[in-house]
Design a protein around this nucleic acid. Structure first.
Length: 280
DNA sequence: GCTGCATGATGAA
DNA sequence: TCATCCTGCAGCA
């Protein structure tokens, strides 16, 4: 479930789990052995999220994983960059951890907790210059309280459908396929409407709603967009059906007008919309 | 036990 | 636009 809300939630949870602690790092899978070696024995200072990207800031203690019992000189900063992609997954443990699976790319272990990462698209150490380039490439993030103006400017320059543009992380960072479908339903905009045709008032509503919904998703750990007054008619045909207006509800009646929900492919991903509530 | 699908992104063509 | 990365799980036999 890695849309932006999950990533920010991971940042918060992992900060609480391992922040400020001396970390033993390993790569059971072996594909991140060098990186794990560099992190091993370091202290995790901070975890931050931007869009769907995670940044774990360490400083090396220079004395290996036994550093805790000795003086711990502050070494050079190290940043671990993680992007879960479609498959990436974290397992978090307090106390006794389950043994890592063979696919575990990275395990971070403190005295009383462990974090295991498998299947990420990106798991790498980056220097400050590379990180700066990465941030520069990402659009404003609704969950960071960023200024939305660049996102509106970005949309005005695009003639592609807004449904396509919303998944472009350079325009807004953190939106995935669920939020794309749901937010467009809530603002009553058809996914194929050219992005530059969306006016400022509509964009502001979209941004405000995104902030609210994503913050809610961050707290809950799952995406629920259906407002209480629309929650009737529990025809739970597919998983999550009671939580969403249109996502994965193709053919089911719209919660507002009962018209069957449409679905088609847009930008390589399935998009969902109500033909009446979101007129073309 | 097998198949297909999934909340993502990239790089080649 | 397409193939690929590469993991977990639901659905099915």
């Amino acid at each position: 479930m890695p849309e932006g809300h999950s990533i920010h939630r991971f940042a918060r949870l992992h900060r609480a789990l391992l922040g400020g602690q001396v970390i033993a790092a390993s790569s059971p899978q072996g594909r991140f052995s060098d990186g794990a070696r560099a992190l091993d024995g370091g202290t995790l200072d901070e975890v931050q999220a931007h869009g769907k990207h995670l940044f774990y800031r360490f400083h090396a203690n220079g004395l290996g994983r036994r550093a805790k019992s000795r003086p711990t000189p502050v070494g050079p900063p190290l940043t671990l960059h993680v992007h879960l992609g479609l498959y990436g997954r974290f397992r978090e443990y307090r106390g006794i951890a389950s043994p890592p699976t063979a696919g575990t790319r990275l395990a971070l272990t403190s005295d009383d907790a462990e974090l295991q990462l498998s299947g990420p698209t990106v798991c790498e150490l980056i220097d400050p210059a590379a990180e700066e380039m990465l941030h520069a490439r990402l659009g404003p993030d609704p969950l960071r309280g960023d200024d939305p103006a660049p996102a509106f400017e970005g949309m005005r320059r695009r003639s592609a459908g807004i449904g396509n543009v919303l998944l472009d992380q350079r325009v807004i960072s953190g939106i995935g396929n669920v939020y794309r479908a749901e937010i467009l339903f809530l603002v009553g905009v058809h996914p194929d409407r050219p992005a530059h045709a969306v006016d400022r008032t509509t964009f502001d509503r979209l941004w405000t709603l995104l902030r609210t919904l994503m913050a809610d998703g961050e707290r809950r750990g799952r995406i629920i967009t259906v407002q209480p007054q629309d929650r009737r008619a529990p025809s739970s045909v597919s998983p999550g059906d009671e939580y969403w207006y249109v996502y994965k509800r193709a053919g089911l009646p719209c919660r507002r007008c009962s018209t069957p929900i449409n679905t088609w492919e847009l930008g390589g991903r399935m998009v969902f919309a109500c033909p009446v509530c979101q007129p073309a």
